[in-house]
Each structure stands twice: as structure tokens, then as C-alpha cells.
Design a protein around this nucleic acid. Structure first.
Lengths: 247, 247
DNA sequence: ATATTTTATTTTGTATGCTGTATTTACTTT
DNA sequence: AAAGTAAATACAGCATACAAAATAAAATAT
């Protein structure tokens, strides 16, 4: 290890925290990331935030000039997103934004339920008191948003609570997989939250989640997280059948 | 839709099944796949079959000439494999084959356990009688391999049984995620199988799995699949501590 | 006018070459 | 001789250029 490397390492890891650009979604440090990874983050955000609609085609050349990069890193980014199932890559026919059918959504919610159940068990075991306190705080913030009928804030806090529980599991593989599945379902749940008249039902369920976590009752928390997602499916499917699946 | 396209569609989908090359691992049709995907399959096999060792560096130029492709599709393949966590991509420093630490293996087995538990529950619900019969047949084949002390055959049949149970769940997202996690753990479990003196312990457990599946007792099957993987971790960790983790 | 074939255009797939970064080697200094 | 510095080399990152495939458009035939 030479001095110049040491200096670089210092600059990278140590000081200047404001130089490091941190992504909101993944939390990754994006400053010295290859273009492909940065582009992947950008497109992921565009998809999750519904700036590109499901089923919509992604034209390489067009998007590459929009993002001001060449097609090479863009194509690499698309491979990444294909792995996350946020897009589908049809050979010789380009990429389209993933558009899960109701059946697939049901499948995804089942898996997500299993992941959250495991997360709950582990969280009850591994969460620090500060983690639980923070989750409780988020819960109260969510109640505040509910009281103000601020659906967007409510939704985001809801998501944050679930992510926080997963983070408390201290199982990084689980956390990452969970966030992938969550991203695939983000839009569905967002729409569901915006439309559903009985959005208060989730409040009671969340109350139960917090109680189970405070009691560090892993089995109870796991069960409640699972049934919570079961309720999500009930809502989503009802909406879908009510208006015929298409967006 | 023109006639030439119709003819092509016919040729692709319909006839000439022998023209289609099907991959052993993923079951994907590989004949008309882009190079990047084919390369990804090749490298994945090399990793899972331990032709490239964990921690080993992957040189783009070198591998590209070995596989007779340019660096562009190879790099795209590496992005795919990074998403599957089979390799790690260090910015400006190339790719290395993933080498999960004991802690990470424990985490992975926990997630795999949750996935298999869900798979078991769904399989008990959705499996057709023919599926169960086939799984039973595989079980007896495994017993035969055990009797002959053919560890390789035993191991492969063991894997096949677990995959078959997952397939019987009829949840494609679950099946795919399970296979990804399984691939990440393949080498670990393979080594464990080769070394472990008490490999007969798994026989009794498998007997229990089949019984639960035949009875279509989802909860029991789920519980047994989980504890089965718990036993795997017990073995793996023991071996690791016994000889100090390095391969 | 409709349907089919042919041509043109657009778009994806792949290879190559250049640039910047990391690592190694040789050299200098203490 | 050990540590530090500077040059050289190897490598990954990216853009451009070309090839092949798919789609769209025009022309021809029915």
C-alpha cells in the first residue's frame, strides 16, 4: 500500500461525506459507481415512481441520449434491472417495463409474506431497543398522517415501517431480497393505497405488529405480517376484478 | 402480422424441438438467446460446478477469448451474475467469484428455509398426485444411491427432490427465487455432502418430508423443511469451525 | 380494395478502439 | 535495506461503428 493509495482511501472512505451521493432507494454510495450502476438506479426510480408505465417499451438509443450516456452502460443497466424483474428483456425486441398479471401479483405477495414472516421472527430476536423505539415513532407518524388524511405520507411511512422491521432482522440477504420484491410490488400497493376506501383497516393491523414486536413475540409478529399481506392481496384483487385488471 | 413472421413464429414455437438447446440448470431455451445470456449460463455453470473457485478473479479479456466472444456481451453477462450474487463486481477492479462468509451462509440458509417452508405449504395445497408420486420415486432412487454409497447421485437426487417440491408449489416467483438461493449455496452443500460422515441423518428427515407431503399436511411439511435446513447449517458450521473456514 | 411480397427504416446485438483508473515494477531517497 | 516515489503495464469503463434482426412502409399482385 503506497501513500497515494492511502490518500485516496482516506478521501474515499473518511472525510468529505457531502461529496458522496447516496441513493434514496438502495442507500448505496453512488458517487464513484460505474455509469451502468448509476443508470440502473435512475431507471429503477423511473419505474418505481411510475414515470415509465408498465408494459411500456424502453428504446435504447432514445433513452441513452436522454440520460446522456452511450448504449453500452445503458444495456448493462437493463441487464441488472432484468435480474430484478423490473423489466422484461425480449431477445431482439428490446425491453419493456414489467407488468405483472394478477396471478403473478398474488404469487409475489405470497413470497413477500414468507420473507416478512421470517423478518419478523428474526427482528423479534435481533432488534435493539432503539430499533423498536424508532419503529414505534414511525408508527405514530403514520397515525398522524392518517389523521391528516395524507395518503402519500401514510403510504411512505407504512413502507418505511415494514422496511425497518426487515432491517431489524439483521439478515442482509433477507433485507435485499425483501426490497427487490417490494420494488416489484411498489406500484401495485401504491395504487391500492390511493384508491382503497377502507385504508383504516391497516391501522389496527399495524397496531398489532408493533405490540408483537415490543413483546418480542416472533411467532406472533410473523403471523401478523403474513396476514397483513394477505389483506393486501384481498384489496388488490378486489380492485382488479372490479375494473378489469388494466391500468 | 405478415406471412414471413408467421412462418418464423411457427418455426420458433412449433416444430423442430431438437433444434432448441435447453439449459440443464434454468430449463430456458438457449438456441436463439443473445450471446450475453448464453455466456451468463456458461459462467454460472462454471461457478456452480466449481470450475472457477470462490474468490477467484474473472478477467474480462482472458475469459472473452476463452469463450470466443467480445467483451461487450461478456460484461453484460457479468452484470446478470452480479444480480444473482454469484459474483461480486468491484468498480474498476473487475469481478470475483462470490465467496460467502459463514455468517452469510447462515443468513442464506435462513432465507432458503423460509422459501422452502412456503413452498411446502403451497405444494401440499397445489401438488398433483402425479407430482407427489414422482417425488416419492425420486426419494426411492435416493435411497438406492444411499445404499450404494454413491454420494454424488445421492446429493443430486436430494437437490432434485427439494426442487420438485418447490415446483409443485406452482408459484413461479418462488421457484425462481428458490433456485437462485440454492445456486448460491450449491457449492457449500455439495462440499458438506461429500465430507459429512453422518449423511444418513438426512434420510430420516426426508422420509418425514414425503410423509407430510403425501398427507398434504402443509404446516408439517413447512416445519420439516425448515428444520431440515437448520440441520444443514449445523453441519456446515461445524465443518467450517473444524477447519477454519477457508477452502 | 385486400393481401402478399419487396424494400426501406428502425432497433437491437456484437466487436473494436480509446480513455481513465488501479496495480505492479523499477527507481530513488533516507 | 526499507520506505517512498515515479514510471510502466494491465485492466476495466465507455463510446463509437458495424452487422443482424425486426418492424414499418411501399410496391406489386390477386
Amino acid at each position: 500500500m503506497t501513500v497515494q493509495n492511502l490518500l485516496k482511501a482516506l478521501k474515499d472512505g473518511g472525510g468529505d461525506p457531502d461529496l458522496a451521493t447516496v441513493d434514496d432507494v438502495t442507500g448505496h454510495n453512488t458517487s464513484r459507481l460505474p455509469l451502468a450502476s448509476q443508470v440502473a438506479i435512475t431507471i429503477r426510480d423511473m419505474i418505481v415512481q411510475d414515470l415509465i408505465k408498465p408494459g411500456e417499451r424502453i428504446r435504447e438509443r432514445q433513452l441513452s441520449v436522454e440520460l446522456n450516456v452511450s448504449r453500452t452502460p445503458l444495456r448493462e443497466a437493463l441487464k441488472i434491472l432484468e435480474g430484478e424483474k423490473l423489466i422484461a428483456l425480449l431477445p431482439n425486441r428490446g425491453a419493456i417495463v414489467a407488468d405483472p398479471a394478477p396471478d403473478e401479483i398474488r404469487e409475489l405477495l405470497q413470497v413477500l409474506g414468507a420473507l416478512e414472516a421470517l423478518g419478523g421472527r428474526l427482528a423479534a430476536e435481533n432488534a435493539r431497543d432503539a430499533d423498536i423505539a424508532e419503529i414505534k415513532a414511525l408508527h405514530y407518524e403514520m397515525l398522524a398522517a392518517y389523521s391528516r388524511e395524507d395518503r402519500l405520507a401514510y403510504f411512505k411511512l407504512n413502507q418505511q415501517i415494514h422496511s425497518s422491521i426487515m432491517n431489524a432482522s439483521r439478515n442482509s440477504s433477507l433485507i435485499e431480497t425483501h426490497s427487490h420484491f417490494n420494488a416489484r410490488l411498489y406500484r401495485v400497493r401504491y395504487r391500492s393505497n390511493q384508491r382503497n376506501a377502507k385504508w383504516h383497516e391497516a391501522i389496527d393491523q399495524h397496531e398489532g405488529l408493533i405490540k408483537a414486536l415490543e413483546a418480542r413475540d416472533g411467532e406472533l409478529l410473523a403471523a401478523r405480517l403474513s396476514s397483513h399481506l394477505g389483506a393486501t392481496w384481498a384489496k388488490v384483487s378486489k380492485e382488479d376484478y372490479a375494473e378489469g385488471s388494466a391500468g
